[in-house]
Design a protein around this nucleic acid. Structure first.
Lengths: 123, 123
DNA sequence: ACAACCGTATTATAGCAATAATACAGTTAC
DNA sequence: GTAACTGTATTATTGCTATAATACGGTTGT
């Protein structure tokens, strides 16, 4: 019911508020959250992740603007999404990662098969 | 002789000074520069890339600290490296990209073969 | 030797992410 | 109904990246 954030390990490669949004989208894609599930309160999550409440608020605000979160003053914050949105996020997230990988290895002159082999080697 | 930076397209995903260092390393890996080749002066490169001279200085300083650049007051800035360093950079750069890709697609539950297929699809 | 370059250094300013400390009004649970 | 929570908002401060404007002394080419 209440989404678990204990597996979220923050890094310094991107803003924290974006990592939080991404974490939720990946949970959607993995069917680890369902439509109507509840997010922890801003204060609770800020304590769990040991980041400032304002940073959490920024993440939640972003999700509201994307239309996957609804919250009311004094009330719970609930996820809101349908299957077609999950499909869209899944495709988006995977394509972005593949394109990033491909772009970088192309810079170093790899062929498609070398890029594929490199994935297998490092898996 | 003088390293060409015209192909370097800056983005906002990482600090500019780091993108410059990475660009040089990739040129090393691709044999597009040789030991002893010259980098443009700080002022010239700052004009070419349209960034502040201090940003270029930060990049060059970093390369000096990594031991691939030597520069003297009033004189040219020269690349300095051997084959084993190229091999090291090649391996480092490729492994980092593969690991990043693998880590992300694993988060979304892909198998190795699905990850491989995704690379082929987007190539 | 002198002008035009070089590398190097310093100080100030701006924007963004994040922190810190509050404050206020709405809701929920007992 | 009251206490303990909620979302929301504001102001100040810090650190990092980048810009801006200089300044100084070394090297190079003519």
């Amino acid at each position: 019911m209440v989404v678990d954030f204990s597996e979220l390990k923050l890094n310094e490669e991107s803003p924290i508020y974006m990592q939080i949004v991404r974490f939720v989208k990946i949970k959607m894609v993995n069917r680890q959250v369902r439509d109507g599930d509840e997010l922890p309160s801003r204060r609770v999550l800020s304590a769990v992740l040991e980041v400032n409440p304002n940073t959490i608020q920024k993440a939640y605000r972003l999700m509201e603007e994307e239309g996957i979160l609804v919250s009311f003053a004094g009330s719970k914050s609930l996820l809101q999404f349908n299957e077609s949105l999950v499909d869209k996020y899944r495709k988006e997230l995977l394509t972005v990662e593949a394109e990033k990988y491909i772009e970088e290895v192309k810079k170093m002159g790899l062929t498609a098969e070398e890029a594929v082999a490199l994935v297998r080697e490092n898996w």
